[in-house]
Design a protein around this nucleic acid. Structure first.
Length: 179
DNA sequence: TAAGTGATCTCT
DNA sequence: GAGATCACTTAA
C-alpha cells in the first residue's frame, strides 16, 4: 500500500491570523495515536478565541497559570477542564505574546468539545505540548479542500458572559456537509 | 430545564 | 481561605 505520509500541519500553518487558521481547519484531519493505533477524524467544527480584546477568551484579563500556553508560540495544545468534567482541546495560534487559540468542537462523528476529548482520551497531559505526530496528537492535511460555501460562520457557544459584541462575533466555523 | 462536577480566578 | 464562575453533557 502506498505510504502516503500526509503533510502534518506545523507552525507555518498555525502561526497566521487566528480567523484564517480557523477557517482552514475544517476538512483537516485530527489524528490521535492510542496504544499504537491511530484514530483520525476530519474536523467539522471549531471556534476562534483571538487576542486581548476578545472578551470571550480566557486571555482577555491577562496571563494566568492556566492560560499561559495561549501566550506562547503557535502550534501547541491548550487543554483545560471545564465544568469539572470536560476537557477542552485548543490549538494555539499567532505569534508569541499574542494570546489566541482555536477550540476544536467537533471531528467526524464526535460532536461537542467534551465528547471529542473523551473519545480521543485527551486530558491535561497534552497541555503545553507541541502539535506533532511524536506527541501522539496532531493534525494532517490530506488534500481535502472545503469550498467556502460549505463552511458556515456562526456565533460561538456558551459565551453569553462576553457582552453583546463579542458574543455575536461569527468566530465559529462549521463544515455544513458534515454537520 | 436543571443538576452534576472540580479547577481556577477574584475577592477577603 | 471562601465564594462565584465556568469555551459542557446528560437525563428528564
Amino acid at each position: 500500500m502506498l505510504k502516503t505520509d500526509s503533510p502534518v500541519l506545523d507552525t507555518r500553518f498555525f502561526n497566521r491570523p487566528t480567523l484564517k487558521v480557523a477557517r482552514d481547519l475544517p476538512g483537516k484531519y485530527l489524528c490521535r495515536r492510542i496504544k499504537g493505533k491511530i484514530l483520525s477524524q476530519p474536523l467539522v467544527e471549531v471556534e476562534a478565541y483571538d487576542g486581548f480584546d476578545d472578551k470571550a477568551s480566557h486571555a482577555h484579563r491577562g496571563s494566568t497559570p492556566r492560560n499561559a500556553v495561549m501566550f506562547g508560540p503557535a502550534g501547541y495544545w491548550y487543554v483545560y477542564l471545564c465544568y469539572g468534567m470536560h476537557w477542552m482541546l485548543n490549538i494555539v495560534t499567532g505569534p508569541s505574546e499574542y494570546p489566541a487559540a482555536i477550540l476544536l468542537r467537533g471531528a467526524g462523528e464526535f460532536s461537542g468539545p467534551g465528547r471529542l476529548t473523551k473519545a480521543l482520551q485527551i486530558n491535561n497531559t497534552f497541555n503545553g505540548k507541541q502539535v506533532t505526530r511524536s506527541n501522539g496528537l496532531w493534525v494532517e492535511d490530506r488534500g481535502v479542500t472545503v469550498p467556502a460555501k460549505e463552511v458556515k460562520r456562526m456565533p460561538r457557544v456558551g459565551v453569553d458572559y462576553a457582552g453583546p459584541v463579542w458574543t455575536k462575533k461569527p468566530y465559529r466555523f462549521v463544515w455544513n456537509a458534515h454537520a
